[in-house]
Amino acid sequence: MAGIQGFVQRSGQVWNRYRGVAAGVAVSVAMSGCGVVNNMIYKTTGDVMQGFAKSHTIPYVLESNDLSMSCAMSQATSPLLMSFGRVTDEPDQLAVMLYLTSGGCIDEQAREYELDSLMAMRALRAEEAEDAMIRQKRAHALAAERYFLGWQHHNAYYGHPDQSECPDFDDDMDEFIYMAGLLSGLQALNAEIQSTSSIGVPKNVGSTVSRATSCLNNDKWWGAPMALRATVWAMIPGALPQGENAFERLNAADLQGEEAGVRLSHVFHALAAMNKGDDEMLRDVIRRHAESLDATPSNEDWNMVDSMATQMIVAISDRMWVENTGHRTPFGKLGTFWDDRPEATEVMNLDDLL
């Protein structure tokens, strides 16, 4: 009997051990199943969010003219939306828009720091001016990093322009995001140069972007592709093709942008004029922009793009005003300058009334 009891006792102990193992296996399988289900939910959510953002969020934002709201949205939601790349396809197209916009937000901060520096120098406050310049360079460096991320996502989705043919665009938004990616690449190089640091932006981005603009329909996109190409021609030595005139091309693009109510070409024209050191041309571009705003309202579908162009033109005007007067462009006076001659007023001859 004692032997039988020992056998039963040992058998019970073995069963208890196996039952523990079985329970552990069951829990593991259940947890694994939960993980699979969760991943499926995350993937579905990511796909839905990406699709919704491209089909609705981006068009909605592009119809708005509230640049501050656009900045807040892009900077606040970028980590959330980009994190879906961990559970589904990388949101490359969405990333182009997010990083281009968020890079522009930091660039705007850099321009504010530059104005602070200029005003401090006018007031002979050397330490304050230097501190503002340091903040400006830091901001440009961060902007360059964001722009460069946008350029890398552009190349991941469409293929690097130097290594692939023009893509087959699915729709207008697809083509617009392609153009936004080219702009992001050019801005990355520009911001890196202004930061006086190096974050690894290839120095041939300008020529690469210039060639890639030929994939875009110039008439559809308000003359901006040609304006971008002509700006590269004007700014990079040896880039101008034989028989071309960069500034004639820019003037033609300006007319297209003004008629369409999307004046992005004015920004490119102003940058080319600044690079050339042609103050009169720069003033003329700013005047044209201000006059065009009065004559033609912004295109409702691309309100944000036109507002961004105006913001950058105002920033250029502000810099000129601060350098010469110590304050920004007076409110409501875009297109005017501190040394403009007063308009002649008609003088009534009182002798005629006698």
Rank of each mutant, 00 (worst) to 15 (best):
S83N: 14
G85Q: 07
G85E: 09
D89L: 11
E90T: 14
P91T: 06
D92K: 08
V96D: 02
Y99P: 01
Y99I: 00
T101Q: 11
G104P: 00
C105Q: 04
D107M: 03
Q109S: 11
A110C: 02
R111S: 11
E112I: 09
Y113C: 05
L115S: 08
L115E: 12
D116H: 10
S117E: 03
M119F: 01
A123Q: 14
L124T: 11
R125G: 08
A126W: 10
A129I: 02
R135Q: 12
A139M: 13
H140W: 14
H140P: 00
A141C: 09
A144W: 01
E145D: 12
R146G: 07
Y147A: 06
F148R: 07
G150M: 06
W151D: 09
W151G: 02
Q152K: 14
H153E: 04
N155D: 15
N155Q: 15
Y158P: 07
Y158M: 03
G159C: 09
H160L: 02
D162I: 02
Q163R: 13
S164P: 07
S164D: 00
E165P: 03
E165K: 10
E165A: 13
C166M: 10
D168M: 13
D170L: 11
I177Y: 01
M179I: 13
M179S: 12
G185H: 05
L186S: 13
L189S: 09
A191C: 09
A191I: 09
A191V: 05
Q194A: 15
